[in-house]
Design a protein around this nucleic acid. Structure first.
Length: 842
RNA sequence: GGGCCCUUAGCUCAGGGGUAGAGCGCUUCCUUGACGCGGAAGAGGCCAGAGGUUCGAAUCCUCUAGGGCCCACCA
């Protein structure tokens, strides 16, 4: 009747059961769910470039354990998944793979076929064609990712798969932005912004990082009217030509008499004012600094607050502009600038230093230092500050009220672990400007706007043309705004499309809306939003988490989810975040093959929520061993007898064991309710090993029917096995499902989470279990010391202990004697001691 | 420069006012009637350091030192 394999194995369970789960649709989200019954998870869409990273496996396995627990608790779990295929990494791969480059001004080419080999030289194609190629290239990776996730055993609903470049996503992204625009939360501005000269795009504050770079202080003389030198120190001497003022602290007596006067710049002879500002630090350098437009973000602050001129010299390509600026008037100055024109920053710096040395305005040698320089996190060259027209979404960076509201959202959110909230708070408190969402790139969601052209063909940016919502998604590079015809593109009194696209985060910030099909499936959205859980890594609190909060706050006046669970990182043996560049790349698929998906999941779910964790294959081996043990122990229990009614449990030891089981169920449930899946696993695992080592050994003979109450032991074993399988199911979905299938109908993953009430009426004094196990352990020790087999008979055992404990042992005497192979057990009162007299070997 | 987390057995980590815990590794033994992808037993630690609070501190507080991370206007 039970179909138990002769030699059970955990190999091959992944393919078999993942296919079965999909065929049976056991993780499918029903169309008619009501919000109260739903547990919804805003799963991170992993970036699909290259192979699945172990860090991803780590975090997703943890979330999956929680999802499975909630499902077994009776929740209707909404567990969608997406692929983040939108953005620069894909764009770069497509360019190289097909030999194309995107020219958004080109019209869409119908029937464009991807080339068999890359075009050489690269062929320009329209943005829409380019995006089609991105789809083609990412499709393969997405298949591989999906397969890995299925093997890992994620209980996601694959019918709710989305991609961040997909049409439905673009529609939502554009519609959400148009709503922001209409409410005034989105705006465009011509302003200095951080700019990557390689990628030639603006960059948001959240995407910048500091890197330590060698630099040098150059002590440079400006000159007063009386030719007296005023020394400034700068790491960027090449920007002397864009200097608009010198600045010192108003309290600084050394420079007080200079305020309001002007000095002339070396080499160029441009007169600039000397101004005072509290941000000027008397301790830094010579206490007086040159303000350039723009060398760093402090320059922008000074420029804005002191209302200074704009003298930009570095172009979007990172080179000094060709034409000599009009503010350099002297012939020598203009000649000097010609030396810099067209040069990149580093070349210009070297030439400028030479010119300063020649003119005698560089005092001493440059003094080498190491300083932090801002980089785009994906870039290789320091960011420059370039004035450009960019789109922004208000995020509280320039508005104290909004900032306060967003800080309140951070407090409202339930953080697991709770100390992660400070990262959010510090980020929001430290914002210096609104969120720059436009990118001068191609592979992303287009900003859905056009601009009117006047009679001279000049665009009017003040009043953009917007699409009909029913036409979304649109590509303004190839689609035409309402009321216009295609031939009016670029013509006087016609229109021009917005070239920019949204930053990846501008779309990723909408994942709860995308997964919930906001505005596309109202019933679904209503049943899942706001979501219950956002799982993610701590390094993207400032980006993904914060931006999602901003969008939900603007659109719904609520949080996007009630709880954020923050997972840690995988650290390599050097205690650094594990990264592909380190070389020791292990693909998850290889680990699944070696340790089983259950083994890998065991490692991931052993880690505390939020804790950075060492990459440890040893831990996976332990998980694999546990899975095998479950298989074998189950085979033993289920091979003993057919189902025995729970009421058959009568023996004290059996009741004691079930009392311990009730405690385990309580502790594991409580741990899960606090999102501490690791503790739930730990509690269950320890109990399981005691169960096999002690309880199973104690009752084995009786359960075989070799004396005593066999039915009681069999019923207790079956009851406890049922509990263990369900307690382990969120962690080890394959082995538990396999065993469940030998025995029960349906999936263990759709069966109810264990309740204490299942065994509460069958429990006894748990101390009997503990004390009996303790005595058995002492007898084993004696055998081990005597270097004899555990099956070696024992002539006599004398247990000394307190009367109450002796009574407990007596309650299990028959089982204990049988397990110990003891002919007799005697009892004396006293301090705990077990005297064992080993019999001669048989 | 500011902040957060961490520091417990050789290793990976639990514990979080009342006699130091697990697994791995190591040592010894067992030869298999659920399990050699086994089983039993053992050795191994001033809980980073210094002060304080307390009858009592690995645990709470302060400082110090290491490690990691986040942030910062980088002249």
């Amino acid at each position: 009747m039970r179909n138990i394999p002769e030699k059970p194995s955990i190999d091959g369970l992944e393919e078999r059961w993942s296919a079965r789960w999909e065929a049976d649709g056991i993780y499918r989200f029903p169309a008619d769910a009501s919000r109260d019954d739903v547990y919804s998870i805003d799963t991170p869409p992993p970036t699909v470039s290259g192979s699945l990273h172990m860090g991803t496996v780590f975090g997703y396995a943890q979330t999956d354990a929680i999802a499975r627990y909630q499902r077994m608790k009776g929740k209707t779990v909404f567990y969608p998944i997406g692929w983040d295929d939108n953005g620069l990494p894909t764009e770069r791969r497509v360019q190289a793979y097909f030999g194309v480059k995107c020219d958004p001004s080109l019209p869409h080419e119908d029937g464009f076929e991807p080339p068999a080999r890359p075009f050489d030289p690269p062929r320009p194609i329209s943005r829409r064609n380019f995006i089609e190629l991105c789809h083609i290239l990412t499709e393969e990776d997405e298949k591989a990712f999906e397969n890995s996730f299925r093997i890992l055993g994620l209980s996601v609903d694959w019918t709710h798969l989305y991609t961040t470049i997909g049409e439905s996503t673009q529609e939502i992204s554009q519609r959400a932005f148009l709503a922001n625009l209409e409410r005034g939360e989105a705006y465009a501005q011509e302003a200095p912004a951080m700019w990557d000269t390689d990628f030639q795009t603006g960059v948001a504050q959240a995407e910048m990082e500091d890197r330590e770079r060698p630099g040098a202080y150059h002590r440079i003389a400006f000159h007063r009217q009386d030719q007296e030198p005023i020394y400034i120190e700068t790491t960027r001497p090449e920007l002397v030509c864009s200097c608009v003022a010198l600045v010192a602290n108003p309290e600084d007596s050394r420079y007080r008499d200079l305020f309001g006067r002007s000095v002339s710049s070396p080499v160029f002879g441009v007169e600039v004012p000397v101004v005072g500002h509290h941000l000027a630090d008397p301790e830094k350098g010579s206490g007086i600094a040159m303000i350039c437009t723009f060398g760093d973000t402090t320059d922008v602050t000074w420029w804005r607050e002191l209302d200074l001129e704009t003298r930009a010299v570095i172009g979007r390509d990172g080179r000094f502009q060709e034409e000599t600026p009009e503010w350099i008037e002297s012939p020598q100055g203009r000649a000097a600038y010609a030396e810099l024109a067209g040069k990149y920053v580093n070349q210009a710096r070297r030439r400028m230093v030479e010119m300063l040395q020649d003119s005698g305005d560089l005092e001493g040698e440059p003094r080498p230092i190491t300083h932090a320089v801002k980089f785009y996190e994906k870039g290789d060259r320091p960011l420059e500050i370039v004035t450009s027209r960019q789109w922004y979404i208000r995020n509280g960076g320039r508005d104290a009220d909004l900032r306060g509201e967003l800080l309140a959202r951070g407090t409202e959110l339930d953080w697991v672990p709770d100390y992660m909230e400070v990262r959010y708070r510090h980020w929001v408190e430290g914002l210096t400007g609104d969120w720059l969402v436009s990118r001068q790139r191609f592979f992303g969601v287009p900003i859905p706007l056009w601009y009117r052209l006047d009679e001279k063909g000049e665009p009017d940016y003040s009043d953009p043309l917007t699409p009909h919502l029913s036409d979304l998604p649109v590509d303004p590079g190839s689609d035409v705004p309402p009321g216009y015809t295609a031939d009016q593109r670029g013509a006087p009194n016609g229109f021009v499309g917005e070239y920019d696209i949204f930053d990846t985060w501008a779309t990723s910030s909408l994942t709860p809306l995308i997964a919930g099909r906001w505005g596309q499936d109202d019933a679904l959205f209503k049943s899942v939003f706001p979501m219950d859980q956002r799982p993610q890594g701590h390094e993207i609190i400032r980006t993904w988490l914060f931006s999602t909060v901003v969008r939900a706050h603007h659109e719904f006046g609520s949080l996007p989810w009630t709880r954020a669970t923050i997972n840690g990182w995988i650290l390599d043996p050097d205690r650094k975040k594990m990264s592909k560049s380190k070389g020791n790349v292990v693909t998850p698929d290889a680990l699944f093959a070696e340790h089983g998906a259950d083994g890998v999941r065991y490692w991931a779910t052993s880690a505390r929520p939020g804790a950075d964790t060492a990459y440890d294959e040893g831990q996976m081996k332990i998980g694999r061993r546990l899975a095998i043990k479950i298989l074998n122990a189950s085979r033993f229990v289920l091979g003993l007898a057919d189902d025995v009614a729970p009421e058959a449990v009568s023996q004290e030891l059996d009741r004691a064991m079930l009392a311990r089981m009730a405690e385990v169920v309580g502790e594991a449930t409580s741990a899960f309710d606090h999102f501490d899946y690791a503790r739930a696993l730990d509690v269950t695992e320890s109990a399981f090993w005691s169960w096999t080592d002690d309880y199973v050994e104690l009752v084995k003979s009786r359960a075989y029917g070799e004396g005593g109450d066999a039915a009681s032991a069999q019923a207790a074993l079956q009851l406890s096995l049922s509990l263990f399988l369900r307690l382990f199911a969120p962690f080890l979905p394959y082995v538990t499902e396999e065993v469940w299938s030998w025995w029960k109908e349906g999936s263990v993953h759709r069966s109810p989470w264990p309740e204490i009430t299942e065994v509460a009426h069958l429990t006894g004094d748990p101390a009997i279990m503990d004390i009996t196990a303790e005595v058995l352990s002492q007898i084993r020790r004696a055998k081990s010391d005597a270097k004899v087999s555990m099956r070696n008979p024992v002539a006599s055992v004398v247990v000394a202990d307190s009367p109450s404990r002796l009574e407990a042992i007596r309650a299990a005497e028959a089982d204990l004697a049988e397990a110990a192979r003891a002919e007799r057990i005697d009892y004396v009162e006293g301090d705990f001691e077990v005297r064992t007299e080993i019999a001669a070997p048989m």
